[in-house]
Design a protein around this nucleic acid. Structure first.
Lengths: 340, 340
DNA sequence: ACAACGCGCTCCACATGCGTC
DNA sequence: TGACGCATGTGGAGCGCGTTG
């Protein structure tokens, strides 16, 4: 026996298709009694609405897109993605909305996917990750006139909605903490410089130099890979004047850096303090466990998903939503510098 | 101006809707010349098929589902998921098929989602992870009569298709290696006992005991968490007769176990060899780096995705596909036991 | 409460034209 | 001359639902 349709229900309940539709969607137009009868029949026949048919009528796809243009393997490496995906998923599931995932190789393919999925009405909106400085995706998506929620920001000069994490505040907290411990030579192993949040963290750092009268503060951009984290660490620890503290923009790099310190006989935290701007299981599993800035990435994504659903329901909205600021969790990798 | 439809193209090209449909889908029924003209017009008008309309017509959703019933946070922790997701994605993208992801809390919700998504024709098939012993999902999915590809196996007593990794072979390799090094007391910190692959690995181990005349071989089931990995490690290392080697079913547990060894002053690999059945960046970042059984999870998933697409195209098929056997990568965490 | 239509596409039954035996 | 095959295209029913008169 085939999948039941509203026509089947109508026949069985002795009413018209229209009445069934009204009843199933809780719309006026049928009496309470027939509504109940219809619902009973639908339930009995195990009816479920056909997504495509529903979408065709009301032009709601019932799905949102997440398109990532990172090399596919980083998906497995960075815990961040898993957290974002499951967080988004949780927020969307409340509404029965699905998450469509696409991993592409380059930004061009990413842009093409936005255009195609919008034109095909495959999704009702998008979630964007990792906003860039002068991000070309923003004007393109504004032109497409499709609901978008950016995870990150605040974003200047855009009408897109976003949910921003206060990276500046967090970086302040980190630097203040290191300065309070007595550190005056600090290196920041940063992420990709085109990322907006990388820039924001770097800015705080240069500013902090003056404020705390630090002797040295440098930000060194990387591609977030463990190998670059290791290379940079080896380089700065090989200098005559070593930093006494290093701040890493990801826990993967921080762990790699810790490995280099060990390999070079630099004791952590006695000779070198390590602070990770990113927290996950990884930071807790090492010895010493890493002091880190931690935040509820999953909750952040869930909230962003809810906002996106609101946006889809009412496209005239614009959301500028602050998420919770990352919190410093001191563990074993930070201490006052030697002789302090 | 609104989204163009095939009717618009038909009008502009001076042909019928049917001809346009044929031309756009590469079907016979139109001459090469008109086909070209139609394609040119479609391209010029920037036409894209409306997914819902297409689905409604040919009853193909153009998407496959992946439903996970693990606590949401493990998604961010286990690199395995990210690799599977991006791997599947890569295979599906070749066909323009989307991946719909759902994370649920419990097996009941997982089953409900299979039923709903099938009934709603939201997806054309499913990918299943982590097959269990007497898995209740199998008969349910067989009853739903929907294409399914299981990542894991081989599975007895099911008509579902699967792509199996040779866990037995891999475990043999691991144990043979440890035995060859001279280890006679081996502990296996296993995964969840209801998982089919866990059982298979355990079976190999008990069998290996006799074959290699080992003094001790025990498998201890866990929930894959770092904390259980640590607890079990602490326990077995506290015994009078310590094991000289531990095999962990996941790299997260292996790293946690390594931490415990360090904390207890047990030197790795001099006093204790550690072998992880699971490889990822994690296993390489530790000191010492972990000897691990490595495999191309992403490629495995990609191949499985392709098979699933084949299955969807021809539901009469059944696929029993072996994937490549995991390979032992010796790193720094394994060595002959003391006094050998 | 009903009948009928529309959403955009697929697909099938059926013309139409042309050359061939 | 007509009957037939083939290639090319047309028209429209139908997919399952929402919605209007």
């Amino acid at each position: 026996m085939a999948r039941p349709t509203i026509a089947d229900i109508a026949e069985r309940a002795g009413v018209s298709k229209g009445a069934v539709s009204f009843a199933l969607n809780g719309r006026p137009g049928v009496s309470e009694e027939t509504r109940r009868r219809i619902l009973a029949v639908a339930d009995e026949m195990n009816w479920r609405p056909h997504r495509a048919a529903r979408s065709l009528g009301n032009s709601r796809a019932g799905a949102v897109g997440l398109i990532l243009s990172r090399p596919a393997r980083t998906l497995g490496l960075e815990p961040f993605f898993g957290q974002v995906v499951s967080g988004l998923q949780a927020g969307l599931a409340e509404d029965g909305t699905a998450l469509q995932l696409l991993v592409v190789e380059d930004p061009e393919a990413e842009m093409a996917a936005y255009r195609n999925w919008t034109a095909e009405k495959r999704v009702d909106g998008f979630v964007l990750l990792d906003p860039l400085i002068d991000d070309p995706r923003f004007p393109a998506l504004e032109a497409l006139d499709v609901p978008v929620m950016v995870l990150g920001g605040p974003l200047p000069d855009t009408s897109l909605s976003y949910s921003w994490a206060d990276d500046s505040e967090a970086m302040h907290e980190a630097v203040d903490y290191l300065a309070a411990l007595g550190h005056r030579h600090v290196v920041h192993v940063a992420g990709m410089p085109q990322f907006l949040h990388t820039k924001r963290r770097m800015d705080v750092l240069t500013e902090a130099k003056a404020r705390h009268e630090l002797a040295e503060v440098v930000s060194i951009p990387t591609d977030y890979s463990d190998s670059e984290g290791a290379v940079i660490t080896r380089r700065v620890l090989s200098r005559r004047e070593r930093p006494t503290a290093i701040v890493y923009d990801s826990d993967v790099m921080a762990v790699a850096g810790l490995g280099v310190a060990l390999e070079m006989g630099v004791r952590v935290p006695q000779d070198l303090s390590i602070l990770s701007f990113d927290d996950s299981l990884l930071a807790r599993l090492t010895h010493p466990a890493l002091t880190a800035l931690t935040r509820d990435t999953q909750g952040w994504a869930t909230e962003a998903a809810r906002e996106l659903l609101r946006l889809i329901a009412d496209p005239s909205l614009t959301v500028r939503h602050p998420s919770s600021t990352p919190v410093l969790v001191p563990r074993e990798s930070t201490a006052p510098p030697a002789g302090h």
